[in-house]
Structures are given as C-alpha cells and as structure tokens.
C-alpha cells in the first residue's frame, strides 16, 4: 500500500487547517545525531526540532534511517547490541543520552507504537493496565479501572471492547489491536508518542481510524510518526522531515515540503521517481 502511493503521481491536498505551527514550543531538539550499528553508520549528523502538540512525520525510502532516528529518541537502540549514538537529543532541554536520565523514566515519558500490533498475550484490561502497574501510577483498583477506561476511550476502542475487557487482547482484529496498543501507550500519560509505521500492517479502513485517532491525540501529545506513505504524512502531520541514506535532507511544515520542496531529492521522492 505504501508502495502504491509512493509511485503514483502525487496529487496531495494538504489540509491548510493543520498549517504548521512555526512558533510552537520545541519538545524534542536533536543536534548532530550519528548512529552506528557496529562498523556501519546508519545516521549522519541529523539535527531536527519536533514541536509540542503536533504531529511530525518522518518520511523517506526504506533503510533511510528514519526508524533508527525514532528509536534513538526513547533509547530503544540501547537494546540493540553494538549500537552507538552520538550527538544530542534533548527532551525538554535535557539530553536523553545523559547519564542522569534513566531509560525507564524516559520510556515512561516517551511512548512508542510499533509497526506490527504487539498486544501482550494477556487480557485487554491487563494490556492497558500494564504501564500503570509497572510504574505504580494507579493508587488503587478503582483508579486503575478509571485509567484503563479513559485510555481505551481516547484510543476510540472503548465501545468495541467494553463488554470483553477480560478477554485476550490477541483476539482482536489487526486495527483494534493497534488501537489497543495505542491505548496501552497513553495509559501512562506520556508526553511524546513515537509511532513506527503504525498502519503498514493494516487495511485502509483500519488505517483511516488510526489516522483520525492520531489527529485527535495531537492536542495533548507530541507525536512523531514514521511512515512510508506520503499521503498519510500529508494527511496527519504538521511538520515533515525527509530522510535519505541516513541523512536528513530537509524538514519543514508539511505543506511546504509537499508543495514546494527545496531539495531535488525530496522532489524526486514525493513525485515517485524513487523509493
């Protein structure tokens, strides 16, 4: 699906109502980020600002480093053996790679949604309650139930699962699973939500629901989304960054990137000449 949109001639209507917020406060500030997997360098001197309360889309061809960048923000790259990150990634002015920052706290503040829906083999309730439980956020059973309910509501899943909270989360459809995972992520009230191609495993209808959801969540969270689909980037994001071969080619308000790219590579990519 992503492939289709990438090669088709582009007629993307950019929603002007979402016009980028040039003056919004900066939530994440990346400066000269380099990432190495062993000998291989995956990211080269990436510097990018991610504004608060908005959706920032990272686009680019496969293997361009956009997911790598995303995973550097919540330090998921730490789990990869032989991975090294240099440069600064600031969250509210603090370097996430600083010794004083605990990845546990960081990841509580920065939630993540993956490409393939990955609900735990537990009940729907337990899936959403997972974060609050491990972090000790809810002080009692009632509060936990309230958190689960409101998270599911925000993820737009409540009406579908309210009567089967205690059935396995793996029994839901793909789109429902992905919304369940989003509910799980927001249950701890993170400040940032990272989404790594959240719709690539979903059908168009489920994709549309997730996109709506992303748009609703934008008001409360800073969202960074990696996507293969330029149409999706155009639909949901206010800011877009184009990655190519491990380098950030250009970044700017989504409208500008799609209508008036400055770099010829961006131009080629969004018009489907490669990717």
């Amino acid at each position: 699906m992503a492939h289709d949109t990438a090669t088709a001639p582009v007629h993307i209507a950019v929603d002007r109502g979402h016009a980028a917020l040039p003056n919004a406060p900066i939530k994440i500030r990346a400066r000269d980020v380099n990432v190495f997997y062993g000998e291989k360098q995956a990211l080269f001197d990436v510097s990018l600002d991610v504004p608060e309360n908005s959706v920032t889309a990272l686009i680019g061809p496969s293997g361009c480093g956009k997911s790598t960048f995303l995973r550097s923000i919540n330090r998921m790259n730490d789990t990869v053996a032989g991975c090294k990150v240099t440069g600064r990634i600031e969250l509210d002015g603090e370097d996430v790679n600083d010794r004083s920052i605990d990845p546990v706290v960081l990841r509580a503040r920065v939630g993540m949604v993956f490409q393939k829906p990955n609900p735990f083999p537990k009940t729907i309730f337990e899936n959403v309650a997972y974060g609050p439980r491990i972090h000790g956020i809810a002080s009692g059973k009632a509060e936990l139930e309230a958190i689960v309910e409101s998270s599911l509501k925000r993820a737009g899943l409540w009406t579908e699962v309210a009567d089967r909270l205690h059935q396995p989360g793996t029994g839901l459809s793909g789109g429902q699973q992905q919304r369940l995972v989003i509910a799980r992520a927001i249950a701890v009230s993170p400040e940032v939500i990272l989404m790594d191609e959240p719709c690539s495993a979903l059908d168009p209808i489920a994709t549309a629901r997730i996109e709506e959801l992303i748009d609703e969540l934008r008001n409360q969270y800073c969202i960074v989304i990696v996507t293969h689909s330029m149409a999706q980037a155009a639909r949901v994001s206010q800011k877009t960054a184009f990655f190519h071969l491990g380098k950030l080619v250009e970044a700017g308000p989504t409208g500008e990137i799609f209508t008036n790219p400055r770099d010829s590579r961006t131009q080629d990519y969004i018009t489907g000449r490669f990717g």
């Binding site: 706290v105 958190i147 009230s189």
Partner: peptide, 18 residues
Amino acid sequence: MTDAALTPSANSLRQTVE
C-alpha cells in the same frame, strides 16, 4: 469521566516513576 487524571503533567509522571 476521569480525563483530568490523564492530562499529561510531566512532573507528576516523572515523580511517580522515579
């Protein structure tokens, strides 16, 4: 609706976790 409890308030989350 317990939405208020969920409003991201960076400091409180951080303190709870820490």
